Amino acid sequence: MKNLINFLKNRQIRQIVTIFLAGILLIVSTACSGVNLLKDKADEASARPELQKKSSIR
C-alpha cells in the first residue's frame, strides 16, 4: 500500500488526469461509433431489393 501511495505522490496529477480522460474518451468513442448500426442497415437493404436505389443508367 505504501508503494502505491508513493507512486501516486511521485506522479504529477496532470499525468493521472490525462490518462483517465484518454480512457474515458476511448470507451465513449467506441460505444458511440454507430458502426454496427450502419452495417445492419446495409445488410437490410441488400436483403430487400425494393430498398435499393434503381440505377438511372441503362
Rank of each mutant, 00 (worst) to 15 (best):
M1G: 11
M1R: 07
M1S: 12
M1A: 11
K2V: 12
K2Y: 06
K2F: 07
N3K: 10
N3L: 05
N3V: 07
L4F: 13
L4P: 00
L4H: 04
L4M: 09
I5N: 06
I5P: 02
I5W: 11
N6R: 13
N6C: 03
F7H: 06
F7N: 12
F7M: 13
F7Q: 10
F7I: 06
L8D: 01
L8T: 05
L8F: 15
L8V: 09
K9Q: 09
K9R: 13
K9S: 11
K9M: 09
N10D: 14
N10P: 00
N10C: 01
N10V: 01
N10K: 15
N10F: 00
N10R: 13
N10A: 12
N10M: 05
R11M: 13
R11C: 05
Q12D: 15
I13P: 03
R14H: 06
R14I: 11
Q15P: 00
I16C: 04
I16H: 01
V17C: 05
V17S: 03
V17L: 15
V17F: 05
T18R: 05
T18E: 05
T18Q: 13
T18A: 09
I19W: 12
F20I: 14
L21Y: 04
L21K: 03
A22V: 14
A22G: 08
G23W: 03
G23C: 04
L25Y: 05
L26I: 15
L26F: 14
L26A: 13
I27T: 08
I27P: 00
I27Y: 12
V28P: 00
V28R: 03
S29L: 11
S29H: 02
T30V: 12
T30G: 14
T30K: 05
T30N: 11
A31F: 01
A31P: 00
A31W: 04
A31D: 01
C32W: 05
S33R: 08
S33Q: 06
S33H: 08
G34P: 00
G34W: 02
G34N: 09
N36H: 04
N36T: 07
N36P: 00
N36I: 02
N36A: 10
L37S: 08
L38N: 12
K39W: 02
K39C: 00
K39Y: 03
D40I: 07
D40M: 07
D40K: 13
D40R: 11
D40N: 11
K41G: 03
K41A: 15
K41I: 11
K41D: 07
K41H: 05
A42C: 01
A42T: 07
A42F: 11
A42Y: 07
D43G: 04
E44C: 02
E44G: 01
E44I: 06
A45I: 13
A45V: 09
A45L: 08
A45D: 02
S46N: 13
S46C: 02
S46Q: 15
S46M: 15
R48L: 12
R48D: 15
P49W: 01
P49F: 05
P49C: 03
E50D: 10
E50S: 13
E50G: 02
E50N: 09
E50A: 10
L51S: 04
L51M: 15
Q52P: 01
K53Q: 11
K54G: 08
S55R: 12
S56M: 08
S56F: 15
S56H: 09
R58G: 13
R58Q: 12
R58K: 15
R58M: 06
R58N: 14
